[in-house]
């Protein structure tokens, strides 16, 4: 077994024209665990995902994924190392069929990609939509296809950016089942999510991000008790005091 954490972030900083989006974030994602990332809107959660996945290569600091330094690598290189990521708003390829959406995400040398795609679609009851164009799916189905797409390469770590937003309750249950299954199979996951019951239910460890900094870390119940977290969500303590 290599290092205990699959993702190690040290001192990650990102400025947008003078506005600090990430102000030196340190974070570890442990192997085989589900790590939650929560925080108010605009706290820098998606910015963090953008940097880790290589979509944004202007951040500074250190990011190690599975022993490789990945800051500055293009997304396709990082994906080749075993990272997968979904987007906050669905990015299903609209003019490709559901099957094509999955196949294009498979490893080029994967001879069983087509079987794998059909199996995944059956698992979430989308087998009848195989030849439907991405844009013809409901939004919830699109989010699901986007998730399945990531699974085509059996990544070691998956970053999920609000995977259940806009998904109806039935599909949502399917989705969380899938997440748990993945974890049982040894996949590490990192999850941005606003529903605290989901975080409480799924996550082994939770990080709380506020204004570009980690303000708390621990199990959900530990984090919940943290006064700083309360302040971040419900207004600044010092402001209410004054």
């Amino acid at each position: 077994m290599a290092e205990p954490s699959i993702l190690e972030i040290q001192g990650l900083r990102r400025d947008f024209g003078g506005v600090q989006a990430l102000g030196g974030v340190d974070l570890q994602v442990r192997r085989g665990k589900i790590t939650g990332l929560i925080g108010p809107n605009g706290s820098g959660k998606t910015t963090l995902f953008q940097a880790v996945s290589g979509m944004d290569r202007e951040a500074t600091g250190r990011i190690y994924f599975d022993g490789h330094s990945i800051l500055g690598l293009r997304p396709s290189r990082i994906v080749a190392l075993g990272l997968g990521r979904t987007f906050q708003l669905s990015r299903v390829l609209p003019g490709l069929t559901v099957l094509e959406n999955l196949l294009v995400a498979s490893r080029p040398d994967d001879s069983e990609a087509e079987d794998r795609a059909h199996n995944l679609l059956r698992q979430v009851h989308l087998e009848r939509q195989v030849h439907v164009l991405g844009k013809a799916l409901s939004y919830g189905q699109q989010k699901l296809v986007e998730f399945l797409r990531v699974l085509m390469r059996s990544p070691k770590l998956i970053l999920l950016d609000e995977p259940a937003a806009g998904v109806n309750p039935t599909l949502r249950r399917t989705l969380w089942e899938l997440v748990r299954q993945l974890q049982e199979q040894g996949t590490s996951l990192m999850l941005i999510e606003h529903h605290m019951e989901v975080i409480a239910d799924l996550c082994d460890e939770v990080y709380v991000l506020n204004e570009g900094r980690i303000i708390a870390r621990g199990t959900f119940s530990e984090v919940r008790e943290d006064p700083q977290v309360f302040a971040a969500y419900f207004g600044h303590r010092n402001r209410t005091a004054s």
Binding site: P75, S76, P94, G95, L96, L103, V104, G134, R149, V150
Partner: peptide, 25 residues
């Protein structure tokens, strides 16, 4: 071919294609 599929993915959404492991460049 797969190459054609990847090109179409680039036309549809280049960022998403790159994030699926396609070397877009």
């Amino acid at each position: 071919s797969r190459f054609g599929l990847e090109l179409r993915a680039i036309r549809e959404d280049e960022e998403a294609a790159e994030m699926l492991g396609i070397d877009t460049i």
